[in-house]
Each structure stands twice: as structure tokens, then as C-alpha cells.
Amino acid sequence: MMSWVRFTVTATAFALVTLISVPLQYFFLKAGWGLRKRFPIFYHRIVARLLGLRIHMHGDMATQRPLLLAANHASWTDIVVLGALKELSFIAKIEVASWPLFGMLSKLQRSVFVEREKRGKTHDQASEIATRLAAGDVMVLFAEGTTSDGNRVLPFKTSLFGAAQVAIRETSVETVTVQPVAIAYTRVHGMPMGRFHRPIISWPGDVPLGPSLIGLLKDGAIDVDVWFGEPMTIDSKTNRKTLARLMEKRVREMMLSSLLGRDLIAPADETPESVAPVDSAILKERKKL
């Protein structure tokens, strides 16, 4: 009974906040005001509180620009979590643009929508992301290409990492900073979440959005760790495949450090060329989850 009371209250508050925020953000975008970048932080912080998300940040976002953030992706709430921390925009799959409400919210946050399955459009999409990077916008790439179950990091797709190098080739910038970001949901109502309870928050690709949203509005009280890892500066000679592999390794280390409760983060002096396809020690730790 209490969970449904909570759902009614939080859903009503979410609807009211969104109804007020959407026209405001639309106006800020049309007017070109600086608030168009800052206002989403305010909105996401309110939504995070309504959803019961307690965010714990480790490290900080790099100050260098252009900046591409390479993150894992376990849930639609990742948008709320990251959006509540910093001024940034997201690289989202094209299907998101047509979703009720969430598609509109994504557009208002100035997301770039990509068609990952159409290889012929990869360069055009990378060029759009590169233009935004060169303009100083921080872009978030959910590099797995889909959502996971929250217990592991899926292999990173390499194609859109090329946007960083396109920014170097097609604009006036000489280098781009790429920073790994790990999101780990660790506790529910103060208790360790573990594999059994992680479906409360995780949203694998084949799970409908509606039940996931309703479940979180009913339950809430989720602790989430956000790790900003050691940034790396790349140039035109950096190999995007080895770059993706390095970012995947660092994100996996940071995520497992939260889930396992111990430090698995390697020294930050690695280069893309020094990274094996999958670190065997990390793989062993992952199997314990």
C-alpha cells in the first residue's frame, strides 16, 4: 500500500516539474541563453530526488575541452544521474527521438541521435558529434551501444569513438580529451543490492520502459556511484579501436571497484597500445558477481 502511495505522490510531482520545465527549456533553447545548458542540471536534480537516487561522485569531470565522456549504460536513469552532475549532452540511438516524453526531453537536452546499424551514416554522425565537441559541448557516449544488466560492462563499440578524431581532422582543434565514466548502482534502501536486486534499477534493452519507470517510482532509495576516471588526450594518430578498448577496461575497473567494494583501478599511465583485449584479472573478478 505504501509503495503505491509513494508512486502516486512522486509521479504527480514528476509530472508537475516536467510540465513546468519543458516550456522553460524550450524558451531557453530558442533564445540561445546560457541557461539552456545549466537548466537541465536543475531539472535532473529534482527528478533524481523524486526517484530516490542518492548520487555519490568519485573524482571529477575533466576541465579540458573538447571533451568526450565514454560511459557504461545500465539504465535510463543514467541520463538523470549524469545530467544532475554536470553540463553535458548525450549521444543517443535514433529510436529515443520518437519515444513519448523521453524523446522530447532528449531533444531539449540537445542530444545527438545516431543510427548505429547504418554504417553508411557513420561519418556524417561522427561529423555532427565532432562539431559539437569543437564548439565546447561535453558529449556523453554510452559506448556499449545498448543497456546492460548492471552487473557487468559490455564490449565497447568503436565506431563513434572516431568522432573525436573527426573533430581533429575537420575543425581547428588539435587534440581531444576522452574520459572514462563508470556508473554503478550499489544499494537499495541502504542494503547492498547484489545481482538479485539489481533488476530494480537495471534496464536491459528488451525490457519495456513503462514497468521500469513505475517500479522505480514505487521503490526508490537507490545509491549510485559515479566514477570520473583519468582523462586521456588523443590526437590524429590515436587508434580508435585501441582507445575504445582502453576506455572499456578503465570503466570496468571503476564499476567493479564499487560492486565488489575494493580497489581494482589500475595505474593511469596506460596508453591504448598497452591494453590487452580483456584484462584476465578483471575477468576473474567479474565472474564472482
Results as ranks from 00 to 15, higher is better:
P180L: 06
L154D: 07
G229D: 06
V22G: 10
A184P: 06
I265A: 11
D225W: 00
Y26K: 12
P208C: 00
S127Q: 11
F28E: 12
D206W: 00
R65L: 10
K284W: 01
T8G: 14
M255Y: 02
F156G: 10
F161T: 05
G190Y: 04
T158Q: 09
L82K: 06
T186I: 07
G145M: 15
G220D: 03
F228V: 04
W227L: 00
L67W: 02
D225S: 07
T77C: 15
E285Y: 05
K93N: 05
R49A: 15
V251F: 03
S172I: 00
F14I: 11
L260F: 00
L283I: 00
K107V: 12
F142Q: 12
I200M: 13
S280V: 13
L217T: 00
V114H: 02
M139P: 09
G261D: 07
S3R: 11
A143Q: 12
A84V: 08
V188I: 14
G162I: 07
A84W: 08
A70R: 09
F27S: 04
L16N: 01
D60Y: 03
L259F: 05
H56M: 05
R54L: 05
A184S: 13
W76H: 09
F196V: 08
H44N: 14
M1L: 06
T63G: 09
V80W: 07
T175E: 13
M193H: 06
S148L: 10
L51Y: 14
E248G: 12
L213N: 03
L246S: 10
V153N: 05
V138N: 02
L243D: 02
V47F: 09
